[in-house]
Write a protein that binds this DNA or RNA. Sequence first.
DNA 1: GCCAACGTTGGC
DNA 2: GCCAACGTTGGC
Length: 188
Amino acid sequence: MAHWLVKTEPDAFSIADLKRLGRTSWDGVRNYQARNFMRDDMQHGDWVLVYHSNAKPPGVVGLAEVVRTAYADHTAWDPASKYFDELSSPQDPRWYMVDVGFVEVFPQMVPLDELRHHGEPGGVLEGMPVTGKSRLSVQPVTPDQFDAIVAMAGGKKRARKRRSLPAGVQPSKVAKPAVAQPPRPRAR
DNA sequence: GCCAACGTTGGC
DNA sequence: GCCAACGTTGGC
């Protein structure tokens, strides 16, 4: 089992919206590294910390879980969608999404300030992309980091430690590695 | 609303 | 393959 953090702008889709809906497709991710985590590594039952960006204050607000593994993000094929990408097609999908289910709204949100505090050298959240300058909207979280954040939030769940992270994934190194891409034609 | 840092594009 | 220019993210 792996653990994750995903960002969402609450004005567009909040943890309250997820609670109301029960589950949703996590569409609209248009970053290759984030896509690869969803497509290649997210497993059914993985826990997902939900982070509100562009919020006052920004921070981790609740918990979700993966309820469907990756499938093509069809919003990329819809010219009317803000997520439309003419380079994606049903025959050759460029973007993927998973479905997530609501688990809980945390009793106390964990604001970015606090995440950053624990992200200082030697802190339990050291190396988490969200504590630094990374914009990565889907990022892996270690079991220890997961437990630390849930404890700060007053949440009830604990890390599922059957396995740690996807093979080869090193959360503290997530911000940098280039994402290997298949060659593709240049847009005109 | 500003704007720094990030991630991507595309000319060379 | 470099890197300037561009568009986006996301904190403030």
